[in-house]
């Protein structure tokens, strides 16, 4: 479904991502591990079109279409939606307005209303806050809104960037359950996590990024047993 072939992303002379390849099939749940600055967010932004990957610096395919160079909106309309790091909500818009932005590209009024109902069933806490400005929400609620906003686009694939960042263990647990639920409903997931344990517990396949390069990949059950992974990311 999603295929990255040898992509490079450079900021000036420094390469943030080098010769990176990755493949995600429909229905997969993939996690990307890596330290701060390993290039995880850059990779997601390259997929979403926020960072442009030049024609001679690799290829990105989604559902058979070559999407590098496309505008973020056009990529989103194909069904890949990113839930960005740090939530990036619209602070002065209400919860409801934030959700509506998620459905900005859609024209089916009924479908939008249905997605809104589904999102509020998944995150009941948002129901009472529909008219509150998003900056008034707690950190956990903001993360839920960020995910709900993404679901409003009716994505086929969701790219989640550090959703657990700054959340309490309890909320993190709730979030993990919700992410599993979203996957069960048929959305293909790519989860970037600094909390490696969480990522490996949830996903079925994992990649390890180091200094912009893929250093390791495999089933998460194998990665959990891998000594290098244990030492570097699980603190064992």
């Amino acid at each position: 479904m999603l295929e990255l072939k040898n992509i490079w992303v450079k900021y000036g002379k420094k390469a943030a991502v080098r010769k990176l390849s990755l493949s995600v099939n429909k229905g997969d749940f993939v996690t990307i591990l890596g330290a701060n600055g390993a290039g995880k967010t850059t990779m997601l932004n390259a997929i979403s079109g926020i960072v442009k990957v030049k024609k001679n610096e690799g290829e990105i395919y989604f559902k058979g279409e070559k999407i590098n160079g496309w505008k973020p909106g056009k990529i989103a309309s194909l069904g890949i939606i990113q839930i960005p790091e740090g939530r990036k909500l619209f602070p002065l818009l209400t919860v409801k307005e934030n959700l509506l932005i998620g459905a900005y590209l859609r024209k089916d009024r009924k479908g939008i209303q249905q997605s809104m109902d589904e999102a509020l069933t998944l995150f009941p806490v948002l129901k009472d806050k529909l008219n509150a400005k998003s900056r008034e929400l707690s950190g956990g609620q903001q993360q839920m809104l960020a995910i709900a906003r993404g679901l409003m686009a009716k994505p086929e694939m969701l790219l989640l960037d550090e959703p657990s960042l700054g959340l309490s263990p309890l909320i993190r647990q709730q979030l993990a359950e919700t992410i599993k639920e979203i996957h069960r409903e048929g959305v293909t997931l790519v989860l970037v996590e600094q909390n490696a344990r969480l990522g490996l517990m949830l996903a079925s396949y994992g990649y390890v990024l180091e200094n912009g390069e893929m250093s390791l990949q495999g089933k998460t059950s194998d990665l959990l047993k891998n000594d290098d992974v244990k030492k570097a990311y699980l603190g064992v």
């Binding site: 926020i50 505008k71 909106g73 990113q82 960005p84 990036k88 909500l89 932005i101 900005y104 590209l105």
Partner: peptide
């Protein structure tokens, strides 16, 4: 308020 996120949703 948030141009990057807006572009992610097709604005």
């Amino acid at each position: 308020q948030q141009p990057v996120a807006a572009s992610l949703y097709g604005i």
